[in-house]
């Protein structure tokens, strides 16, 4: 059996230059609900790709179609140059899967669970090593039912890794983890990236996508609304900063937006629950002008802050909604 020491020198099959994942015109409805609505994606080998989007955007459906668990209504799926109709057996050996929600049997121990999953793969890492990678050494002999949520998540991750996959699907791998466990998982993903694995993950956390992913696609209502590197997406806003302010309550509604938009460097304005947001290119010149303009209207501010634009702002500017408000 192949050991993980060979991991870095993984031999790819001939034709191994095909993208790790190629989706074309993917569609899937559940009754009236269109979960995936004409999706195209391409993920190169060795890339870490993030799927972002609000609840119900269709991330899980997309990823489960890729994993061969859900049949698409239309479109084509190609993984590692293979497709599910002809290469299912081979593909299952070469991909690793973590589902959004899986409860492993409570009464098996961590080690027994991993040994079971290990037995399904022709090659892979040893049970010891998967325990160690998921930092579950202390819980090795513990029943799954006694693990904390984060530990269970790590076990799910370990089960996904035990076959030493070339292509790894992680559906919300860090949801419900504490910051430390999350950072630990990030390190694990980093190590896999180093080893040349392709990783496709979904997340609600923008900072996670920014930290881990080489490229991201933002999904909404079953479509990809934009994709690219984090920097590209943020740059597409045309403004690297966001100024947020709120007007004192009794003056709410008195604000005239036009003078603000006239300030050089201010790209756009939107308001959400009384909080005004301006996309701004150059903070040092724009901020004094913004203060002056608000002052000129005789408005009193109850809040004022700035931050660097994030993927969240990209989503907001594209949909007019925030990512987590649904």
């Amino acid at each position: 059996m192949t050991d993980s020491r060979n991991a870095a020198t993984l031999t790819l099959d001939p034709g191994g230059n095909a993208p790790s994942l190629l989706l074309r015109g993917l569609r899937k409805s559940f009754g009236d609900v269109v979960a995936v609505d004409g999706l195209d994606l391409e993920v190169a080998r060795g890339e870490c790709f993030g799927l972002l989007g609000p609840n119900g955007a269709g991330k899980t459906t997309t990823i489960e179609i890729c994993e061969g668990l859900t049949e698409a209504d239309a479109g084509s799926v190609e993984l590692l140059g293979l497709d599910w109709r002809t290469g299912a057996g081979e593909l299952r050996q070469r991909i690793g899967v973590q589902l959004q929600e899986t409860q492993f049997p409570d009464k098996l121990t961590v080690e027994e669970t991993l040994r079971l999953f290990r037995s399904f793969y022709r090659r892979g890492i040893s049970v010891d090593e998967s325990v160690q990678r998921a930092q579950l050494e202390e819980k090795r002999g513990a029943r799954v039912g006694t693990l904390s949520g984060g530990q269970k998540q790590r076990l799910a991750m370990a089960c996904a890794l035990v076959g030493d996959p070339e292509l790894l699907f992680l559906d919300e791998p860090t949801t419900g983890l504490d910051p430390q466990a999350r950072r630990h998982l990030w390190n694990l993903v980093d190590a896999l990236k180093q080893a040349g694995r392709t990783i496709i993950l979904t997340t609600h956390y923008m900072e996670e996508a920014e930290r881990l992913c080489d490229r991201v696609a933002i999904m909404d209502h079953g479509r990809v609304i934009t994709q690219g590197t984090t920097q590209q997406l943020i740059a597409s806003l045309g403004a690297e900063h966001v100024v947020e302010f709120a007007v004192a309550e009794r003056q709410a509604g008195k604000l005239d937006v036009a003078p603000l938009l006239a300030i050089p460097g201010v790209q756009s304005h939107r308001v959400d629950a009384g909080l005004h947001q301006l996309s701004v290119g150059e903070l040092h010149t724009a901020v004094p002008s913004i203060f002056a303009a608000l002052d000129g209207q005789g408005l009193e501010l109850s809040e004022f802050r700035t931050h660097s634009a994030t993927l969240e702002d990209v989503f907001v500017s594209l949909t007019g909604r925030t990512l987590r408000d649904e």
């Binding site: 668990l69 589902l99 409860q103």
Partner: peptide, 16 residues
């Protein structure tokens, strides 16, 4: 129970 807890799905996602 395995179906309800999505374990069946996880099992068939592996090469088992």
């Amino acid at each position: 129970e395995a179906r309800q807890k999505k374990l069946l799905k996880r099992m068939v996602a592996s090469p088992m």
